[in-house]
């Protein structure tokens, strides 16, 4: 991992602790800064705090009132500089997630390695598009 990737900050929104703790720890060992939350409100709290955030990894089913779908739509509108990756254990969710991110959802059960590769692809894509703009 290069130096620029080390500072990338990821918000993991996952209401199931046994999934969240394993995934968050794996991503930390990969060199990312990982912040853990369980609901959409945690994203807004984090943004309000002024913390720079690069990727939100959210399950479609979150604690609180807002779903991962709704959060993802909102982030695309208000924070287009933040990438969103959705995960899902619900079979029917696939079609809807496709609508939100063209790479599709990450279906559970997943290996943290697959999530990390998806993050790496998104960050790489973003870096490339920034370079092309410059």
């Amino acid at each position: 991992m290069t130096k620029s990737e080390i500072q990338q900050c990821i918000l993991v929104l996952e209401p199931e602790i046994l999934i969240r703790m394993v995934l968050a720890q794996y991503l930390r060992e990969c060199g990312y800064t990982v912040i853990e939350g369980v609901q959409a409100a945690d994203f807004h709290t984090l943004i309000d705090s002024g913390r720079e955030l690069h990727v939100v990894l959210a399950d479609v089913k979150l604690s609180g009132e807002m779903t991962g779908f709704e959060l993802s739509r909102g982030i695309r509108q208000t924070h287009p500089n933040i990438d969103v990756i959705l995960t899902s254990g619900v079979a029917g969710a696939v079609a809807e997630v496709h609508d939100l991110c063209h790479d599709g959802p990450i279906k559970k059960p997943y290996h943290p390695k697959d999530v990390e590769s998806r993050i790496r692809i998104l960050l790489e894509r973003r870096r490339n598009s920034q370079h092309s703009k410059e």
Partner: peptide
């Protein structure tokens, strides 16, 4: 650090780790 948001999460974490 393992993070838990409430008692039931904490108990699940203790059992798992």
């Amino acid at each position: 650090v393992i993070e838990a948001i409430n008692a039931s999460e904490a108990l699940a974490a203790i059992h798992a780790d």
